[in-house]
Amino acid sequence: MLGIAFALTALFMFVEFAGGLLARSLALFADAGHMLTDAAALALAWAAVRIAARPADAKRSFGYQRLRVLATFVNGCALLFIVTWISFEAIERLLNPVPVNASVILWIGSIGLAVNLIVFTMLSRGHAHDDMNVSAAALHVLGDLLGSAAAIVAALVILWTGWLPIDPLLSLLVCALIVKSAVSLVRRSAHILMEGSPEWLDQVELRRTLEQRIPAIRDVHHVHTWSVGPHETLLTMHALVSVSADQAVVLKDTKALLAERFGITHATIQIEVEDCVDKDCEQPPLKRDRTARG
């Protein structure tokens, strides 16, 4: 899927760049620039998917899943860079309009729209929403699809009215439409690379659930959660249990509850009977919450 999408995108990128030179159209140049980053994004996403499938080894005990997140971050940054460049070029064109060949823009923009629709449909059917890496590549293609549509509209307006500013104005509109999603992808991937806690996970609720559902657990602390890749969440924690508790049963029940309630299947749990063996074991947020409820 990603390989075919890359081939189609790279092939038409050269056609559109040549058309931009011939027609002197910023909309086509913008679209060609998008397609260049699209091709790179698709190639990177394709490589990341293949490499991420490799099994863990002695040097990388968690495997290569993080590579997909890194590919997302790089693709998001590249998209923001190209959007910034196109915006500056569009402002320059608004201040100093340049004649363009609207007929060439119309034909190439129409072909580009068809190619991008095919590629975007392929990526959407590949469940892009479930994979941050593929989502980043799909966003590149969506931006290019909008760019092709903008080129078509610009060509029609110029043919009918001769109004040249429509070309850079629509380029700015395309940039505005995709920048928010690009920032979101960069932010989400950077959060994972910084080993931040998954955004969907409420640690206060997690601790409260364990303490309420497993009677032997007196306190949960030192909770740390992070993601290796887009989907797998890892957890480490300390659980203070009563002296009479069967530690093996507590461990088994805790892991089962984490998997059932929070979808966490990779957890390292330290069982403690007396006091926490490390410093700074208290986690005030849950303490304050209990006081408020009391």
Rank of each mutant, 00 (worst) to 15 (best):
T121D: 08
G162H: 01
L193K: 01
A267Y: 05
L286D: 00
L123M: 11
S197I: 10
V179M: 12
L21F: 13
A248T: 10
A256H: 13
S197A: 15
V241K: 00
P168T: 08
G143R: 01
A7G: 07
H34E: 09
I105T: 06
E282C: 11
E260C: 13
S61K: 15
E205Y: 10
L28E: 05
K252H: 14
T265S: 10
L142R: 03
G126F: 10
H222I: 15
L173H: 04
L22M: 14
A52S: 14
R208V: 09
R218Q: 15
S181F: 05
P99M: 03
L70M: 15
D31F: 00
L257M: 12
H34W: 11
A190K: 00
R93H: 10
G19P: 04
E260V: 08
T84L: 13
N116I: 06
S189F: 00
R207T: 12
L22E: 09
L28D: 02
L234W: 08
S124P: 01
P230T: 09
L146N: 04
A56C: 13
I192G: 01
A30Q: 00
A137F: 00
T121P: 02
A248N: 13
V134W: 00
R125G: 11
L113S: 09
L210Q: 09
S135P: 04
A256R: 15
I152K: 01
I214T: 05
R207W: 03
D131S: 13
I217N: 00
L139F: 07
V183W: 08
D167N: 11
N101E: 14
S87A: 13
W226Q: 12
L70T: 02
L123D: 01
A90V: 04
G294S: 14
R24T: 12
I192F: 10
A190L: 12
E199R: 08
L234N: 01
I111H: 06
W200A: 12
P215K: 09
S181N: 12
E205G: 11
E205P: 04
L95D: 05
A138D: 10
P168Q: 05
L11A: 15
E16V: 10
N133M: 07
T233Y: 07
L113I: 09
L123I: 10
N133F: 06
E89W: 07
T254D: 06
L95C: 08
R290D: 12
A40Q: 09
W163S: 12
A150N: 02
H266G: 06
